[in-house]
């Protein structure tokens, strides 16, 4: 990796992850480190075992729910609030991905680097909207970096679910959603579309939904599946983690219609693999067009690409005249797509 006297040499890739040497701090490290900035609460970005954690108050709260036994020293930073560590000016900006998700902006020696974390450009009632920051180096995610991934309007996808509920009123509808972000965004979208019946939640979704409610989000009548009798669930709308749909847990519902809300649902083979009868293409990541647009809007002379389809995005950016290369960070998984 580059040395400190080279361009952008003050940010380097170490086995633990992206490391800013003058500030002695990692960004979303894959293992426990003394000092970490965490972009958002998904498990492949927010790990336990750090000495000190810098993040938004929402992200710190989410980590508290996920890792109750982990007690690092914490520092909450509001969007736009600047601090300086070891001569590096640091601030966080909204990434639009999930509640509390942030991009990390770093300035040092006349250079500005922005680490995007995971982000999306579509409106989301449960996450502050992405903010474009002009920079010299932009480090972007690339989860959906193939031109086949172009997310349709979320409202249109939600309507598919409501149409099925109207067309198959005698069946339960089980919707697979990730516990952090997608679950609460779908609750909001389904309510915005006018669905007023109770929505039942799998046990794994409850704590984080309560956390969102604590931050002031209103999801209407939301109840736990556990303890509700079978007759009441037989025609209900139920949210569960995607893995629960093909698991023994789903056996409590007589003949359910299974839906999954994820950007991966765009590709039929992936949707079938997940056992989705009703694939809803709703993603918390930027799609192909938005990745290209964002890289351009930052005005960055160079783009580094992390976790996802680095090859395709690098190819397209280079063709468009930007310097770009893949950055291989180990330990990234497909969570919360």
């Amino acid at each position: 990796m580059a040395r400190a006297d080279q361009k952008f040499g003050w940010l380097e890739l170490r086995p633990g992850g992206l490391y800013c040497a003058p500030a002695d701090i990692y960004i979303d490290p894959g293992r426990g480190v003394p000092n970490a900035i965490i972009t958002h609460g998904h498990a492949d970005h927010a790990r336990p075992g750090h000495g000190k954690v810098l993040a938004t108050a929402e992200t710190l709260a989410i980590m508290g729910v996920r890792y109750p036994a982990d007690t690092p020293e914490t520092q909450a930073l509001a969007y736009g609030e600047r601090i300086t560590i070891g001569g590096v000016h640091i601030w966080l900006a909204p990434a639009g991905h999930v509640l509390g998700s942030a991009q990390v902006a770093l300035e040092y020696g006349g250079e500005r680097i922005v680490v995007s974390g995971d982000y999306k450009r579509r409106p989301d009632p449960t996450a502050a909207a992405f903010e474009v920051i002009k920079c010299d180096l932009f480090i972007t995610e690339a989860t959906f970096a193939l031109p086949v991934f172009r997310h349709p309007p979320a409202e249109q996808e939600v309507q598919k679910l409501l149409t099925s509920i109207a067309q198959f009123p005698e069946q339960a509808h089980v919707l697979g959603v990730y516990g952090l972000g997608k679950c609460q965004r779908m609750l909001s979208l389904v309510r915005e579309a006018g669905f007023e019946e109770p929505i039942y939640l799998h046990g794994a979704l409850i704590k984080l939904t309560e956390l969102y409610q604590g931050f002031g989000f209103d999801f209407g009548d939301v109840r736990p599946v556990a303890g509700t009798d079978k007759a009441e669930l037989a025609t209900a709308l139920i949210f569960a983690p995607p893995s629960a749909i093909q698991d023994k847990w789903s056996r409590r519902f007589q003949n359910p219609r299974t839906a999954v809300a994820s950007g991966w649902m765009r590709v039929r083979a992936r949707a079938r693999q997940r056992g989705a009868e009703l694939p809803l293409v709703i993603s918390d990541h930027a799609d192909w067009d938005e990745l290209l647009m964002t890289c351009k809007e930052t005005g960055a002379e160079e783009v580094w690409i992390t976790h996802g389809r680095e090859d395709a995005l690098a190819h397209a950016l280079i063709a468009a005249g930007q310097r770009a290369h893949p950055l291989c960070i180990a330990g990234r998984e497909e969570e919360a797509a």
């Binding site: 193939l146 031109p147 991934f149 172009r150 590709v267 397209a316």
Partner: peptide, 19 residues
């Protein structure tokens, strides 16, 4: 980009429809 996409999706009509 088409080759990478077709490789991922696996079906010609679907790849063209999406891309």
């Amino acid at each position: 980009l088409f080759a990478m996409s077709y490789d991922y999706v696996g079906d010609l009509a679907e790849t063209v429809a999406l891309i």
